[in-house]
Each structure stands twice: as structure tokens, then as C-alpha cells.
Design a protein around this nucleic acid. Structure first.
Lengths: 195, 195
DNA sequence: CAGTACTCTGACCGATCGGTCAGGATCTGA
DNA sequence: TCAGATCCTGACCGATCGGTCAGAGTACTG
């Protein structure tokens, strides 16, 4: 029998996710996590190299999806970029509500860690896309307000069903995003008419 | 005569405001603040009873304005409530950008402190007003997204002039807030129903 | 049976935190 | 000149943090 990988690993991961989402990364000690699992702090550090590695493994799936979204945005401009950024980010935020809650407010230091080295650049590109790559302050401000607000809302409405939260957010974004100027060039792809 | 209050008090307050806004409350040690002022940590604790008192004095002006806004909202419903909440909160957020940045992300624990005992209730009422006191999930979500997003945007765009940030935010809120249903009653001027 | 690899733990470590305290330095008013 | 108030500090404290380590317990394997 290979006894598989000890399930303790997964239990620690799950406990960390729960605690991080409530008290944040810095506000949660390894002792807290160990206590919730029912093991010793040393056991936590037997399964994970350090606290940072625990967080990195916890965020890995969300980071992967974020990178995928970033790839989809390359080359897009104007309204299509806004659309892809809006839908993609809302989906991501709704799906990874807990991970979003973990990172909430801990950005400044956490972003320095290698596991999240590119998250700032990606979120900048995401914001830029949502602004339709416009330089107008109004567009840039609206994009930031929406991205930050969506993150916060998803972290707050943890109990709301996905299929209630997602359409409400998408409707909001469509209404709130500053529409792009009439395209300087003919629309790059077939697009739907504005309602 | 009285030699006024030592200016060290004010210097500590200013240094704390700067550090808190960058590294957060928990992420800033008394040693950090003392180092920025150029005094000892004991001096910081001579002028302020403890770290919490330092934060409370820092946030006092913003808290006062927040309470004033809360008072203005009592009795208002529907579109007028949305309007007052929107304008009032944008003004507050733009004016107290640094204080907003301090509290960003540290809510769960900081809100337990007596100095901020009512901030959660006030922000709930503010959100409710911005939603036009509607029960629709879309309205509630939009209100939360906007309030959180505005806070984040103000903390982010610290260098943007007030008279550029404020109108952009107000325009955004007007566009994004879910409009209230046609008023059930003719616009109520001064009538309150519940207590 | 012995050997070994895996899992887990208590004890411990250095660093840092917020906070205390006795006392030095400086100034003021009588 | 001197007593007292004010301002400030170095040294110190207990608590907690992330992290290390030697070794105990256990289960497979040959």
C-alpha cells in the first residue's frame, strides 16, 4: 500500500484557506492553522517549507486562471478588451472568492513574494483593458473602482450563490464602465451593436 | 508660558499617518514610527497611551465627518438617499484618502476596537442608502462594489488632484448606481416611518 | 527479525512585537 | 537658587512570531 500522500497535507491547506480568508495572511499564525487541524505547528512546517509556500500553494489555481485571462487580453483593444476583461475578471473573482479574500488588503508586502511577482503587472494590464486602453482619468478611475470593488464584494458575499452574484456583477460592470470613444479604426472584429 | 503642546506629538502623528498608509496598521511597528520621527519608541509611548490610541487620534477627524454623513442620511429614502450617500462618501473618501488607505484591509480586527465600534454599522447604513434602500441583490451589490472601489481608488490615486478625482468618481457613481424603482409614493420631504 | 522511510512532535531558537519603568536632561516660576 | 513639571531615553519585560532539530512512533519491506 502506498497509503497515498498523507491527507494531513490537504487538511492543512483547507484550514489555512479558511483562516487566511477571515484573519488575513499576516493575522493568521502557523499555530492557529495547526490548532484548527489538530496537529502541531511543527507538522505544518513538515508539510510546507514555510508559511509563504503554504500561501503560494493555496493561491496557485487562482493564479493560473489569472494568467490565462492575461493571455486572452493580449492584442485586444477598445470595447472587445473591455468585454473580455470584465467577463473574465468577474468569473475569476466569483470562482475564487476565498482566495480573493485572502489577498485583500495584504497586497503591499505579499506582492513582493516571488509567487506573486507578476500579479501587479497582470492586474495593471487588466485595469488598462477594462478602461478600453483609454488615457482619460475617468476611464482609468472607473476601471480601478470596479476591479477593487468586485474583489471586495466577492470576499463579502461569500454565501451568495454564484449564479446570483455573477450576473449582477456583469450587469454592473457593463453599466459602469466608461464607454470607449468611437473607434479610431474600424472595429477589429465583428461586434454587437450597443443596445 | 505654556509653551504649547510639544510639536513632537504632531510629528509622531504625521509620521504614523505616512507609515500606516503604506504598510498598514499591523505592518507598522512603533519602532518604525519612532525611527521616522527621529526619537525613541519610548517617546512615542510617552505621547500616546498605546498604539491603538495613536491610530484613534489619527482617524478622529475622518470619523467625525463619517458620523456627520450618517446623520444626514437619517430619514432619507430612495433617490435622495442615494444622492446624499454618493456625494457625501466621495467627498469624504477624497478628502481623507490617507485615512482610508490606513484602514484598507485591516477591517476585521480594527473594527473591534472601541474607537471604531460604530464604523461597521455606519458603513452598512451608507451602503443601504446608496442602494436606495432596495432589497434587490443587484442594488446591494452595486452599492458595495462602489463604496469599496471608491475607497481603494482614493487610496491608490493619492497624487491625483482632488478636483480631478472627485468629479470622476461622482460621474461614475451616478452611472453605476442601480436606479431606484419609480417611487411608490410622491417624493417624501420630511417623513420617517420606522424607528 | 532488522532496516528504513515516512509522519509527527516537544523543546527550543533568535527576532520582533507592544509596553513599562527608573532616571537623565531641560525648562519654568517663585 | 532650587523645587517641580515636562520631555525624553536606554534598558528591560513577557508574549508571540516563523522556523529548526533530534528523536519517537509507525508501517512497509526484505
Amino acid at each position: 500500500m502506498v497509503r497515498a500522500v498523507s491527507e494531513t497535507h490537504g487538511e492543512i491547506l483547507a484550514a489555512a484557506a479558511r483562516r487566511f480568508a477571515v484573519t488575513g495572511y499576516r493575522g493568521t499564525s502557523l499555530q492557529d492553522i495547526a490548532g484548527e487541524v489538530g496537529c502541531s505547528k511543527a507538522t505544518v512546517l513538515y508539510h510546507f517549507a514555510n508559511k509563504e509556500a503554504l500561501l503560494a500553494e493555496l493561491m496557485a489555481p487562482a493564479m493560473g486562471v489569472l494568467r490565462d485571462l492575461d493571455d486572452q487580453l493580449t492584442g485586444l483593444t477598445g470595447a472587445p478588451a473591455q468585454e473580455v476583461a470584465a467577463i473574465g475578471f468577474v468569473d475569476l473573482a466569483v470562482r475564487f472568492r476565498r482566495e480573493i479574500a485572502v489577498l485583500r488588503g495584504e497586497f503591499p508586502e505579499l506582492l513582493c513574494q516571488p509567487a506573486f511577482a507578476h500579479i501587479q503587472q497582470i492586474s495593471d494590464r487588466l485595469r488598462d483593458a477594462l478602461a478600453g486602453h483609454s488615457d482619460r482619468p475617468g476611464a482609468r478611475i472607473a476601471a480601478l473602482v470596479l476591479l477593487a470593488g468586485i474583489s471586495e464584494a466577492c470576499a463579502e458575499f461569500v454565501d451568495m450563490p454564484d449564479d446570483e452574484l455573477r450576473p449582477a456583477l456583469i450587469t454592473l460592470v457593463r453599466r459602469a464602465v466608461e464607454p470607449v470613444e468611437p473607434p479610431l479604426f474600424p472595429a477589429p472584429t465583428t461586434e454587437d451593436k450597443d443596445s
